[in-house]
Amino acid sequence: MIYAGSVHRPRLLILYAAYGDGHLQAARAILDALESCGGEGVLVDLLAESHPILYQMTKRFYMHSYKYMPHVYGWVYNRTRPMKHNSLFGGWLHSFGRDTIRRIVALERPDAVIHTFPTFALPSLQHTGRPVLTGAVVTDFDLHCRWVHPRIDRYYVATPDMRKELISLGISESRIVVSGIPLKRGFRNVVPDPRIRARHGLDPVRPLVLIMAGAYGMLEGVPQMLEGLLAHPDTAVALVCGRNEALADSVRTRFAGACAEGRLRVFGYVDHVHELMSVSSCVVTKPGGITLAEALAAGIPICTLRPVPGQERNNALYLESKGAAFVARNKDQLIAEILKLVHDPVRLKNRKKAVAELQTKNAAETIVLDILSRLPIIKGARFGL
């Protein structure tokens, strides 16, 4: 379905929020797939546009509570998980950005609006008249009811289990697509290639453990993990520190010998995660939805250490229940599991089989094609606010 030669190019408004990188990455993946189909799109951080001061305050609170008060964050997440869209709290959350989205829709005149973050100011404005087609892309393996709104036309979810959960909450099955989580172009076809190791200065022979410290390098206990793994001379490690330059510098200094031997390679923020994953035996990571989906797309098992309460812990426990992940209670348990996994071919094969059963291909393209296939129903009408 290519629209490049059409008189009217399909136009999508894609709304996200930059609490972490995941929602923005999903939005960019959808935009890339849309442009490949001849459409055009606009990315908007609705909260940043509508309430910049409040946005900065809540973003700072999110980062600090996540790092220093994880149990507070987890309590709030779990306490609000079953909330209704029309509850006092739910209605208040969805009220942010109403005036801004009204102006943006009038200016951009999109054919559809896609949300990769559950701020549903537009659906809360829609009347019984002709609305813009709306979609919600759930970017986790756990469903918080903030994502559930009766005026969302299409739900795009990671798993059949989430589809069942939405149905149990009253969402029609016909409105739900098990698309997977949209990922950047490099994950469309992840193929291991020995040349990748040489290109990135990785050990050419030893089993490779990939440690992802997160976009802001907040993964707990990275030096201790490295000590335990590098104590075994038959193991190599690639560490991605994200934007945490201090972590990268301290690791290079502390483990200079392993770096010189080629058993440890330290990266900052990278755009070639798909290549690193393709040549790794497993990944150690914070269990954010995007990173987990990337690991599944790459076909590698996942290990995580004491995930933060909230969606990340629930993500990890879900994948562990499917055999695709291991959730460690402490660093010693984590290191022991990693070493058993990467040096036991049968164990590794079984874990990869569980990973493969959860894979979804081309999520961004699935989402875009589903949205575009529904645009003729609109018949050129627009949303009059």
Results as ranks from 00 to 15, higher is better:
residue 73 Y to T: 10
residue 250 S to Y: 01
residue 175 R to H: 10
residue 303 C to Y: 11
residue 363 A to L: 06
residue 283 V to W: 01
residue 273 V to I: 15
residue 96 F to C: 02
residue 151 R to E: 02
residue 174 S to M: 01
residue 381 A to T: 09
residue 132 V to R: 04
residue 331 K to Y: 03
residue 149 H to L: 06
residue 331 K to I: 14
residue 357 E to S: 13
residue 298 A to T: 05
residue 21 D to P: 09
residue 246 A to E: 13
residue 293 A to M: 07
residue 217 G to K: 07
residue 295 A to Y: 14
residue 352 K to H: 06
residue 32 D to Y: 15
residue 273 V to D: 01
residue 260 A to D: 12
residue 231 A to N: 09
residue 306 R to D: 04
residue 223 P to C: 05
residue 123 P to W: 05
residue 242 G to P: 07
residue 77 Y to G: 00
residue 349 K to P: 00
residue 335 I to C: 06
residue 346 V to K: 10
residue 214 G to S: 08
residue 286 K to M: 09
residue 195 R to S: 15
residue 14 I to N: 04
residue 42 V to T: 15
residue 13 L to M: 07
residue 218 M to E: 11
residue 187 F to P: 12
residue 369 L to A: 07
residue 166 L to V: 02
residue 247 L to Y: 07
residue 101 I to E: 07
residue 101 I to S: 05
residue 287 P to H: 01
residue 72 V to Y: 11
residue 249 D to G: 04
residue 257 G to L: 07
residue 18 A to S: 14
residue 307 P to N: 00
residue 368 V to M: 06
residue 198 A to N: 04
residue 111 D to W: 07
residue 158 A to G: 11
residue 33 A to F: 14
residue 1 M to K: 10
residue 162 M to H: 09
residue 129 G to C: 05
residue 343 H to F: 03
residue 27 A to H: 10
residue 195 R to L: 14
residue 107 L to I: 06
residue 283 V to R: 04
residue 224 Q to C: 02
residue 12 L to N: 02
residue 192 P to K: 06
residue 329 R to F: 03
residue 1 M to N: 09
